[in-house]
């Protein structure tokens, strides 16, 4: 007969080695009842806190039962073991209540903001077109950094842009580049191109598509110019119009934008930033 391993012997022949078996049984029982030190049982949580009687009394009873079990140590002990967060910004500023464990939810002032109504959504220009630039590196969560070649420090040509999700029935596409921060309190347009075929899904860097019409930018020029004094963030916007505006070359970009917004079309937005050294 082959010799059994220790574990097999323990399981198969409890009659032999009774003292060891009994000791292990006690250890097993103690460990299982104690939750192996890693169960959901919390420090300070007595067996009575999970009694069937307490459970049967329902939520209201649970809230009032066993005041002695509501020791401060409950959540405090847990936090010390596993839940120490890195110093959260503002965490220390949370309003505290003298009569309660945790913080009080701050009381808001004034009326809550109103969500857009269906009518307002219908009248808005919906930002649901995907617009991006294959010319620019990813922005790591922020605006994409604009390489100098697409500014007055380089060739001064516009980057390639690609888009998807233009709604069916779109009559005209119009591209804008705008400063996000106003200049002397006014919207500053760096570039505006109308008359883009809705069937297109992008434009090449520095090349206008056939039929495109260029407007007058904030510098008074018919063209593209990104030339900040310091750091600036720009918003490229592709507007999809439900009916054409077909402006003349050299159109007033600010005026055309007002007319675009009245049409309640769709738009794709893409942010890029540049800082002159």
């Amino acid at each position: 007969m082959a010799q059994r391993t220790g574990a097999e012997r323990l399981l198969a022949s409890p009659a032999k080695g009774t003292s060891a078996g009994a000791a292990l049984a006690l250890v097993l029982a103690a460990l299982l009842l104690g939750g192996c030190g890693g169960s959901s049982a919390e420090p300070g949580e007595s067996s009575s806190t999970t009694s069937p009687a307490a459970a049967a009394q329902g939520q209201a009873a649970l809230a009032e039962a066993e005041p002695g079990a509501q020791a401060q140590g409950g959540s405090q002990a847990q936090g010390g073991a596993t839940n120490q967060s890195p110093a959260a910004p503002g965490a220390g500023e949370a309003p505290q209540s003298a009569g309660k464990h945790g913080p009080r939810v701050p009381q808001p002032k004034g009326a809550p903001e109103q969500a857009p109504t269906p009518a307002q959504i219908a009248n808005a220009t919906v930002a649901d077109i995907s617009l991006t630039s294959p010319s620019l590196p990813p922005g790591a969560g922020g605006p994409a950094p604009l390489p100098p070649t697409y500014t007055c420090d380089g060739d001064g040509k516009w980057p390639a842009l690609a888009w998807s999700g233009v709604p069916a029935g779109t009559s005209e596409l119009i591209l804008y580049a705008m400063n996000i921060a106003p200049v002397e309190g006014q919207l500053y347009v760096d570039w505006a191109v109308a008359g883009i075929d809705p069937a297109l899904t992008g434009i090449e860097a520095g090349k206008l598509p056939k039929g495109a019409v260029v407007g007058t930018n904030g510098a008074g020029k018919r063209g593209y110019e990104i030339c900040p004094e310091g750091a600036e963030t720009y918003l490229f916007a592709l507007y999809a119009l439900p009916r054409p505006l077909s402006p003349e070359p050299g159109f007033d970009a600010r005026e055309l934008r007002r007319r675009i917004l009245e049409l309640s079309g769709n738009v794709g937005l893409y942010a890029a930033s540049y800082e002159r050294g």
Binding site: G79, P103, G185, Q186, L187
Partner: peptide, 30 residues
């Protein structure tokens, strides 16, 4: 009127995960 996103409806969508601190009873999303 002078805002680059004037009249534009932007939808923020997705899933958010927040850290719960049991000691302070604060959920932090960052």
């Amino acid at each position: 009127e002078e805002c680059a996103v004037d009249g534009i409806l932007v939808a923020v969508t997705g899933t958010a995960g927040g850290l719960i601190n049991n000691t302070t009873e604060i959920a932090t999303f960052d």
